[in-house]
Design a protein around this nucleic acid. Sequence first.
RNA 1: GCCCGGGUGGUGGAAUGGCAGACACGGGGGACUCAAAAUCCCUUGCCGCAAGGCGUGCGGGUUCGAGUCCCGCCCCGGGCACCA
Length: 948
Amino acid sequence: MSAPSPENATSGLPEHRYTARLAEQIETRWQDRWETEGTFEAPNPSGPLAGPGAAGRPKLYVLDMFPYPSGSGLHVGHPLGYIGTDVYTRYKRMSGFNVLYTMGFDSFGLPAEQYAVQTGTHPRTTTEANVANMRRQLRRLGLGHDPRRSVSTTYVDFYRWTQWIFLQIYNAFYDAEQRRARPITELVAEFAAGTRPTPDGRAWAALSAAEQYTVVDDHRLAYLAEAPVNWCPGLGTVVANEEVTADGRSDRGNFPVFRRTMRQWMMRITAYADRLLDDLDLLDWSESIKLMQRNWIGRSRGARVDFASPAGPITVFTTRPDTLFGATFMVLAPEHPLVDALVPDAWPDGTKAAWTGGAATPADAVRAYQRAAAAKSNIARQAADRDKTGVFTGSFATNPVNGTPVPVFIADYVLTDYGTGAIMAVPGEDQRDWDFAAQFDLPVVETIARPEGWVGEAFEGDGVHVNSGFLDGMGKDEAIDAMISRLEADGTGTGTINYKLRDWLFSRQRYWGEPFPIVYDEDGIAHPLPDGLLPVELPDTDQFSPRTFDPDDEFSDPESPLDRLGDWVHVTLDLGDGPRRYRRDTNVMPQWAGSCWYELRYLDPTNDTAMVDRDVERYWMGPDPTRPGHPGGADLYVGGVEHAVLHLLYARFWHKVLYDLGHVSSVEPFHRLFNQGYILAAAYTDERGVYVDAAAVEERDGAYFFEGRPVTREYGKMGKSLRNAVTPDEMYDAYGADTLRIYEMSMGPMDASRPWETRAVPGAYRLLQRIWRNIVDEDTGAITVVDTSADAATRRLLHRTIDAVRTEFEHLRFNTAIARITELNNHLTGIAAAGGLPRAVAEPLVLLLAPLAPHLAEELWARLGHDASLAHEAFPTADPAELVEDEVEVAVQVSGKVRARITVPADANAAALEAAARADERIAELLAAATVRKVIAVPGKLVNFVVG
RNA sequence: GCCCGGGUGGUGGAAUGGCAGACACGGGGGACUCAAAAUCCCUUGCCGCAAGGCGUGCGGGUUCGAGUCCCGCCCCGGGCACCA
């Protein structure tokens, strides 16, 4: 048992008071013991991590979102979700579940690389130090992780499998008919056997090797393509859309960003758009997150329509084929491939001056406009409420339903990578087209009758069709169907479905990421490396920066750090046709890669023959056969809403590919998702608007001062930039980890954001001190429990509390669970002071507390005479007999206002209730002076006399 | 602009259509102490001496009864945003 706290001995406090120092001793001692005894190791059903206890009890897989090991360490906002999952898993473990709960690190990524560029410190050094620090901070918090399962994406034995999965995706194609991915070898076999026609109808054998290669490549789920990217010469890399600011500059460094096409790795996530959308219905996620994913995928039904033109048919996508009679012009994205072919030598006669952009020839006008568009980022181009710009190509196309010639423009309000990159413009029924038409003096044909009193411009609603030939008189939906039928009959269009979701740009020209397991031969043909040549280890270097360029040099080309490592890049390999020279792919994968599958590696982290053993995966994540339609996946996934779209969509996509290829049994990776709130904190700005150290701000009479000068308060996410971070280390030092845990859990419901208030932490501290004091003598350290039985009222309160706490834990409502435990303990304080707590009350109290404040609970449990950890002790169960109340207090209302409270037998019926209410002196008085029109008596609730 | 959340004491929050404000922070008062800290007790939505009245963003409605359900506003937070 513990020695008296040395601090207590010199401070005049009772020697065995629960102070921060004593808490620290207790906490670190139990953390050591949990680790030594392997308390939280969860057995697998088979394999190296097998152990007794996997069979014969239910399993539970609880997951926190994969953290990035930040250099500045944790602040108290980070562990909010971790504490929640720890409480929940401890509760479920005590309820008999085999619980898998661990944490690894998403440790590739930009900050360590940027730090390396600035200081020359290898990212591995920085990353490992950060991981070590984060492990220390988390261990000190007492999280019940299985330490054997902690992984890190930067470890070779992890990213070996990231590369392996990449190859699975690369070597697969999407069979649209079967709606699933299949091995690419099966595609080749079908082409060869003639059961699947080649794109141009020739026999497979008639195609050259290069042609075969191209055909196959066009089907791969991971493929190289010329893709529009955000090229940032100042940083030497392409950046993601979300890394570009609204004014078209890089988030980091504030360099210009250019739109251009480059050869990049892409993931064909669009092939899975339907399943990613439809399977949302199988998931226990909040509707708001599902909605965000639905909007992101953006499925819309419409038609593709061909317009004949001098450059051949131009295909447009429209959701409103019913308005085709109102299509008075066409607009192509500036980058559309047919633009060059459309441009004639001279402006046609009668071309309006406004259409030419002031240029002498169409070619000049188009080229100038294309150049201007390229200089704008996607974001800047899409800034709404901008005036419409564009130029006439000089050509006309033909409206297929009425043969009318329509001028073809290019304009940047049409996006290259949505639909077909070309639109039919219907100014009468589309406001954007109306705006363009107004700008360029183009005709407007109204094809839907305006409602009475309509004063707007374009009318985008439903109504009766006019000026629309065979559609006249029809409503919108009917007309859409009729038009699609007509187009399909005429061979000028087809009904189709389109998505906002784009294929995923998967390569980065950086250093600190997973290398691609791809090499190129002398002809530039890509070859996947066989499994035997994995891993492709990230080579060492001291040059971490990509080559950077003049920030304004739009036409420079990226050169990644790996490009410079000639010895690594150029290799001789035998890929089956003898040793040959190859050049390695020098891109690295984006940070998302590791987090797309880490939840699978937790299951079987030491497996060196498979990413995860199939039986092990089926045990932890397989569909529940007792629940029809259950997709499998982790039982609970907790994390911030900021990953609502990208991470959660990418991970679902990878998981589905692995499912299709037979590597996992679950259809979805995360069955239940819970979004925790953030911890906010007050931040203060001085008169210049500069943030000052929030810890040094003083409050006087509702105003705030920093070094004597007034400052302004605001609230924001805790962090370095607002200078308002509070670290768990500070809290461990001042109160101990259990207090921090209780405080964070008591602040409010898990899914709500709430402001941190350091001065409120002692409330949690005092609760733990009072519980301690109710069981331990502060002067002697001896246990004060007695073996007498508890009085009836205490027993009832205890069992009501057990019942309530169980319910609250099940629903992740830890704040109200703590309130109930507090109420119980407040009641027990008098009993403890008057002669000691009955053991029959003290022990359940300790077990109730155990998930929330595990160290303190373990210590009390041990002092109460138990040798084993309580981590696997049965959680208390309420005795139904103790939950039955003899008497209840009900309110008596007169016309809805509470005028009295009466105590009646719990089983009193309505008549008895009314009689008891009428017997109340005050009520009798009030009723004597009025006429009772109606009596509502709800047994157990209230009586309401309606008087009038 | 469109789509989601959410507005309850000085503060964080609690309330299957049935006693609004559990629990905690902060405040006030008291006990103990030479004093302070710690601890314990009482008190604390607002107005009012009291009786009582008023109170869940605002305005209406349904109901015996509304924080909770319905309609219309206002404000705050988030997502998407020229997606044809």
